[in-house]
Design a protein around this nucleic acid. Sequence first.
DNA 1: TTATTTTAGATACAAGCTAAATATATTGCC
DNA 2: GGCAATATATTTAGCTTGTATCTAAAATAA
Lengths: 391, 391
Amino acid sequence: MPHAAAATPQLLRRVNAQAVLRHIRGVDVATGSELMALTGLTRASVIAVCEDLISRGWIVEVDQPRTDPDNPRKGRPARRFAFNREAGVVLGLDIGAATTTAAVADLRGTVIGRSSESFRAEDIPAQERISVIDLVCRQALEAAGTGPGRVLAVGAGIAAPVDRDGNVLVTQRFWSLFDVGLRSALKDLHGWTVLLENDANLAALGERWRGSGAGVDDLVVLLAGERLGAGVMESGRLLHGRGGAAGEMGFLDMVEGVGSSDGIAALARRWSAADGGPSAGGPASAPRVFEDAAAGDTAALAILDRMSERMARVIASIASLINPEQVVIGGAVAESAGALLPGITAALPRFTATPPRVTVSPLGDAIVTVGAVRHALDYVEANALDLAPAG
Amino acid sequence: MPHAAAATPQLLRRVNAQAVLRHIRGVDVATGSELMALTGLTRASVIAVCEDLISRGWIVEVDQPRTDPDNPRKGRPARRFAFNREAGVVLGLDIGAATTTAAVADLRGTVIGRSSESFRAEDIPAQERISVIDLVCRQALEAAGTGPGRVLAVGAGIAAPVDRDGNVLVTQRFWSLFDVGLRSALKDLHGWTVLLENDANLAALGERWRGSGAGVDDLVVLLAGERLGAGVMESGRLLHGRGGAAGEMGFLDMVEGVGSSDGIAALARRWSAADGGPSAGGPASAPRVFEDAAAGDTAALAILDRMSERMARVIASIASLINPEQVVIGGAVAESAGALLPGITAALPRFTATPPRVTVSPLGDAIVTVGAVRHALDYVEANALDLAPAG
DNA sequence: TTATTTTAGATACAAGCTAAATATATTGCC
DNA sequence: GGCAATATATTTAGCTTGTATCTAAAATAA
């Protein structure tokens, strides 16, 4: 029996409750009349919906604001309904090869606790890795003054392909074992729902939420540190592809003037070493190269030129096939990468007929955790009426 | 006032009617009990919905089938509701630079009329172009034994970027003028709703519907005749990008071993000319090259090898960034391209870590019109309850 | 105090669905 | 042909959610 969800009268309440909740979440506090105007429902219905949401814990009724002499309101004072941002928290995880960072946020996305730990080594057993991740989560929750019982969802980013259903591509070495462990481990330990995603995809979510891609529906975020990786949003949705490998940059091996999917930091080291170093004497770190260039060092400036053209070619390849409105360069090197922007922007039209706007992420290291928080919030918002707010 | 669609009790009927109609469209004829099992609704509701759909003209009640002695059915005979595939027709247009083809289909997608005309020249004025298109439509409708009044929607494919809203990228030369003309012209002439799309995108719709990509959600169709162009579906949705230019192949200019976005037919001519021709004596058409190769001609075979590797590189580039499950080669050269498949499949793993299945389209020249019909049907199905079937 | 304004709450009713009882049309058996 | 069994159809009462309308309450302004 296929049983394709029949629409019963209860669906109406569900739909209207979702609409009201979404609006209240957006404005933080609303009156019945505002909600009537928004939804087109009558007052009776709006009030009924709000009482419903109050009893479920998603909104609370707040006192009248003290009467404001500058802006006196006629008429009977309205009841005021506020989004209960303390109905629970979400966790955003950035699980790297070397380090894991956790951020705890309330339901409006304000980060209220953080923690970070490095792994003892890269090849530690899955069990130890999970222990460290669990530790980071608990530390972050403690820093936020809350506990595991109040977590409504966990977003987690890893540097491996993850498909639409949150499964790690099995062809990847140790991650596959690790993944299965993480989701069920956190479920078993705390009852948490873990939403696994590729880190570049989460970066795209984060950038669109609180970065330079705010509100852009066709957005690509390039994580450009050690290795290039792209998170692609089209029409406001993340692209995954069949096995979650969308946004992988292996094809750059074949692109003239690019030749590899090495990131900006990796290349800065290599190229400065080849030059004998910007101030001579071996490879320099990426920040050093950018510093030297800012100071006028010609060798460093040449590296920047070369890097700009290379990035322009990378971005043009993506722009041609995906046609984003904007490409954001993010990751560890994002701040320095600002120096590349003029060069990239100038070179782009040579390589593509549809050059996107190019910007640099303001989110820094937090880009993945911000996206992970957003991912978890999206889940909570979409499933609010099926989730029991933690009391 | 934002007025975000309130859910009234009428919405329930709408949702349930959509579900019932979708199911009946799939199975062609259904009984009340089947629909109860499918939707989970009670018989009373199912019957009410069906009566509704009958009065709107979307379904019809059909007589009992003559009692079948091999399979006698106990109990009171069920009323049988059938999809009214003759509630109207849709038009699918393939508007090329040189030729326009129209297909008329009933609401189950069976093509019941076709027509095709060439333009007098490529640079004729927009007005003349529209006249020819209109003529082709009317001829196809006549061939189908129906008339303009019964057209519920028109899908139209053109070889230019078209954004999500059906607007042609304004940077394109004469198309922009042409487009505005086409949509409003057909609206004015016949009251038709025209859904403009990029031809490769429609090819992808067609291939997923009735081609070798049936049911594949992450699918790329490469139109590979004169110029390469891709229609990309991810998670069952067409990718457009900001200005509709997603799937453009300009970046191939930068890809080693590819170098241009020339199609198979164009390259077969050029390469055979460079060789002095497969049987000597100047350039040969693509079909000729494939023929000669099949006959064992070594020069032609060499061209095929070269072509296979080149296509493998093209497909690998896309596979890396988009990660489709399958890539279909379509367009005028599709039939001959079968000879390239073994070579492409063998070469792919050298160029990408996520090689897709590669096939050749069985739809031949009709690939765009089939997709255009599907596009129009999608529109009709999504908007059935707001559309008045043509009586 | 009194009028005005805005929101709140209560009552009557409509749309759509469920559930349960009753009616109808067919098969199969005597 | 008559009757049980079976599957479907139809009717009736009741639930949920919504609208529409009327009256009450709480504030400002004169």
